[in-house]
Design a binder for these strands. Sequence first.
DNA 1: CGTCCGTTTGACCATTTGGTCAAATCAAGA
DNA 2: TCTTGATTTGACCAAATGGTCAAACGGACG
Lengths: 202, 202
Amino acid sequence: MSDAKPQTRIQAKNRAAILAAGLDAFSQFGFRGTTLDQIAEAAGLSKPNLLYYFRSKDAIYTALLERLLDTWLDPMRAMDDAGDPVEEIITYARRKLEMSRDFPRESRLFATEILQGAPHIADHLSGDLRALVDAKAVVIRGWIAAGKIAPVDPHHLIFSIWSLTQHYADFDVQVRAVLGKDDWFEDADAHLDTLLRARLRP
Amino acid sequence: MSDAKPQTRIQAKNRAAILAAGLDAFSQFGFRGTTLDQIAEAAGLSKPNLLYYFRSKDAIYTALLERLLDTWLDPMRAMDDAGDPVEEIITYARRKLEMSRDFPRESRLFATEILQGAPHIADHLSGDLRALVDAKAVVIRGWIAAGKIAPVDPHHLIFSIWSLTQHYADFDVQVRAVLGKDDWFEDADAHLDTLLRARLRP
DNA sequence: CGTCCGTTTGACCATTTGGTCAAATCAAGA
DNA sequence: TCTTGATTTGACCAAATGGTCAAACGGACG
């Protein structure tokens, strides 16, 4: 999976600058709403120069999505089948919430892609993602059968964790407007903890 | 708030067709990602004809958002201070879930607007919306003080209900891909019911 | 029938946008 | 220093896009 392409120092730097600028733009305006000039200016390059590093607008977007998907599921993969069930699930939720805090642009990029029908990653959803979720669903069912957590639909439990955590990144503007303050992490974390604990307690 | 403008039968019909087509397009592609030609064709009108009814692309989008905001908060307003606390909250969640099922395009339109920083409705968020949420927060705190429901942060409880329910409309593609089936309503409804009930039980 | 006003359209326009290309510039090794 | 390949750019292009406008059309009513 590692790129075999050799990269000069300057290439690495410029490609990184382009991806950073692209993440900023795409996560805020969506694919169609973002222009190459916008990205080029933010990256400090001319448009033709930008296209020297990525063959098209779509290539930038795709590269970002691939980089994102590569790490997006790490918290779920990190769930330990052998750990304490309630703690494993709650830790998973906390890690997802931390990602909303630390990588809101990535979360929004993912959200806009899904909202638009996931045209670039439909395969990923019904492939890798579904396989991983199904695998974790088996683990969760095992925990239920063992009486370690209360009976719960594993898929919808996972959806709950996704929605509860990503909401704080994706709807950040709304959250801050309603809360009247900017830092939601501590309160959200405590809230999620009690919510999940109440539901999972066997 | 009622428009004083008289409308002929044909005007009402065409304006409705345009709004319907606009909702389809904007909810899927966002504001910048949608073209007038797209809307015009879907509405069965020529582009100049479309602009005879709405002075600009922005006017269509704004009209849709206004219509949406007008009804979006109805379920929350319908929460009855005098009703049974747990049932009121669960009924609110169910109504929101029904909206995800029955008005997914509206939900996605709202989601794209918020994702992009709510440029058109920032005032609404920190005005009407915040006021309503704060009012309901007072009610919920009253319920807690009376021992009718378990202690909970009212704002984050409301965020939870928003995120849990809207997720099924906004991330519909992902939900269906992971579930491997198209109808999620019944299972989601049951899941939400037990989740909230477990958390709210005093 | 003829008029009037609401409706519709073809032609047109300026700007934006994704993308190309040949030429110029630069940087490092021989 | 000279060469070579990587890097950068100005000029350019075709298509798409939001929007305009004068002219044509159509139906209801006197």
